[in-house]
Design a protein around this nucleic acid. Structure first.
Lengths: 140, 140
DNA sequence: CTCAAATCAATTGTGCACAATCTAACTGCG
DNA sequence: CGCAGTTAGATTGTGCACAATTGATTTGAG
């Protein structure tokens, strides 16, 4: 067994890249990336967001989200408008085109889980474990 | 529970970024990144490599590794030399400085595992599960 | 009411990930 | 031998991740 294979972090690193790759392949027809898909998923299920609220949901900062959301706007899937009451805030909202994609794209995350072969029970346990690890790393 | 939280892939994505962040903090004194650390780890434990063998170990292509190894060379940790017998091949070798770092840096991956709170038994099971998932995603 | 501090997003700079393309070098078939 | 096909690595271009800084706006203490 090589050095990398016994490292928990390498397994995570590797698995995360493999899932990104699976999404890339499935999302290719729409030229969409996995982080972009996540932003749409948040908008579909939780309605309008701000850059800040997206950052909270995905644990990403504006350095990542600002250009990402700009690309979604460029592709006609969302609009970005400064909040009238607080000009610092940018409101991100789905366009009709962005809303319409939900029917086609929403099932993709289930398909990836299926390909990964994570059954429902194992699924929940694994997620719980990963979330614990993430939380402990953030605490430290 | 928000949309993102029930996605296996988001958990992976999130956990992988959290571990990268832990490494970033621990490696900051040496201005080194996690992928750079991985390359050194392979060199420490398995001796001289080529760009191709590193790519096989880490599942990365030359588009990622070429500039990464160039930065390690710039920082004086490795040398890159064309193989005399086959000029296409680049041999990557630790310098004395790169070798010397092993004593200081090798323990870091255990420290990260400790912070993540993965005990030895859970450790192995989790790694096995992640590796299965990765393999299934690559097969598809 | 004013100004200092806090907040929100954008920007800048570095590095990784990966697809696609390119070049040089090697291999082997005919 | 000679050239077609393969291989190794580098390069280019796009996008993400994140630290650090900046700029504009809002808030709150005095």
């Amino acid at each position: 067994m090589s050095i990398t294979e016994d490292m928990i972090c390498f397994s995570l690193y590797s698995a995360a890249r493999a899932t990104a790759q699976a999404y890339r392949r499935l999302l290719a027809p729409w030229s969409m990336t996995y982080p972009q898909y996540l932003v749409l998923a948040v908008l579909w299920t939780e309605g309008d967001q701000t850059i800040g609220s997206l950052g909270e949901a995905m644990q990403l900062d504006s350095g990542t989200l600002s250009p990402l959301v700009r690309r979604l706007e460029r592709d006609g899937l969302v609009t970005r408008t400064r909040d009238a009451d607080d000009e610092r805030v940018v409101r991100v909202r789905l366009t009709d085109a962005g809303t319409a994609l939900r029917a086609e794209l929403a099932p993709i995350h289930k398909k990836v889980a299926e390909i990964a072969g994570v059954g429902d029970r194992q699924h929940r346990e694994l997620i719980a474990e990963l979330r614990e690890i993430t939380a402990r790393l953030h605490e430290s």
